[in-house]
């Protein structure tokens, strides 16, 4: 391979990755007239609540992905080759559809007059609630269960969209685990639970860490999901940044400062995560 084969990508990186980052940094440290200032970062502090909620929702989504994704990856890795490819197809299938379309689909499922609520009305579940739980708690009578425009819907949307990114790296590591190592642990007196806790899980940590990274980073910066499923009430950092650039509050300086702070926070989170992996585990996790 000639060295210059890499040039197109090099140019691409400079134009579309390095330059924008420099622009963001430039905006973040200047005021509207172009003079150096740190004031933008002062304004960021006002949005601490949104930062907090974003990181919290992303963390919850990541945790749910891990709790659901790890067992799935584990079961997949222990299945026969046929079953494995079926699982794999089922996991990949939603990803063949556009991300926005999938989220729209969730809207119509979760809406007040959406699929789930209509179904619950039909089977009389909402009536049942109105007769039992609602008076007991002293609530107003329900017409539907509020499934959309809240944190629950945002977390659900994130879990749905990002779950494959948790499953795949964990699965990749587990599938490469030498079955002899598991047998060795059993041989040394370890029942199933200890084999998992002391051998399988520690050895799958690189996969878990890349899974967490690949879910947490897009989750913390998402804005489409929170906008569509959170109904604008549940603003996240992504929405905030979008607002600074696209909305009426046009203010690229503060928008850049927010973006920069978010980036640094994500870096910090990743640095902490990577410390959990002491680098002695099996290779194979997709590291960011």
């Amino acid at each position: 391979m000639k060295k210059w084969f890499a040039y197109p990508y090099g140019v691409w990186m400079i134009v579309f990755i390095v330059a924008p980052i420099l622009l963001v940094v430039g905006y973040a440290f200047t005021d509207k007239s172009g003079a150096f200032t740190l004031a933008n970062f002062g304004s960021v502090a006002a949005y601490a609540g949104i930062f907090g909620r974003s990181f919290l929702l992303a963390a919850v989504s990541t945790a749910v992905c891990l709790l659901m994704g790890y067992p799935l990856a584990y079961i997949m890795s222990r299945s026969g080759p046929r079953l494995q490819s079926i699982y794999m197809t089922l996991i990949m299938l939603p990803m063949w559809m556009n991300f926005l379309l999938r989220t729209y689909a969730w809207m119509s499922i979760l809406e007040n007059k959406g699929f789930i609520n209509t179904f619950l009305q039909k089977i009389g579940f909402i009536d049942l609630l109105n007769r039992t739980l609602v008076p007991a708690m002293g609530w107003e009578a329900l017409e539907y269960i509020p499934l959309i425009n809240n944190s629950f819907a945002v977390v659900l949307g994130m879990v749905y969209n990002f779950l494959p990114f948790m499953v795949l790296p964990i699965y990749t590591v587990l599938i490469k685990l030498d079955p002899k190592i598991i047998e060795a642990a059993q041989d040394l007196g370890a029942p199933q639970s200890i084999v998992f806790r002391r051998v399988i899980f520690p050895l799958s940590l690189p996969g878990v860490i890349s899974g967490i990274t690949m879910v947490f980073v897009p989750a913390v910066s998402t804005f489409v999901i929170s906008k569509m499923l959170g109904g604008g009430k549940e603003m996240m950092i992504g929405d905030l940044i979008e607002l600074q650039f696209m909305g009426n509050a046009y203010n690229p300086q503060i928008g850049s400062a927010i973006a920069l702070v978010m980036m640094l926070l994500i870096f910090a989170c990743m640095a902490i995560m990577n410390r959990f992996d002491d680098g002695r585990g099996e290779e194979g996790g997709l590291m960011l």
């Binding site: 002899k180 190592i181 047998e183 060795a184 520690p202 050895l203 002491d278 585990g281 099996e282």
Partner: peptide, 10 residues
């Protein structure tokens, strides 16, 4: 075991 099967994380 054949090829040892040591625990690589320990």
């Amino acid at each position: 075991f054949q090829r040892y099967a040591l625990f690589p994380h320990l």
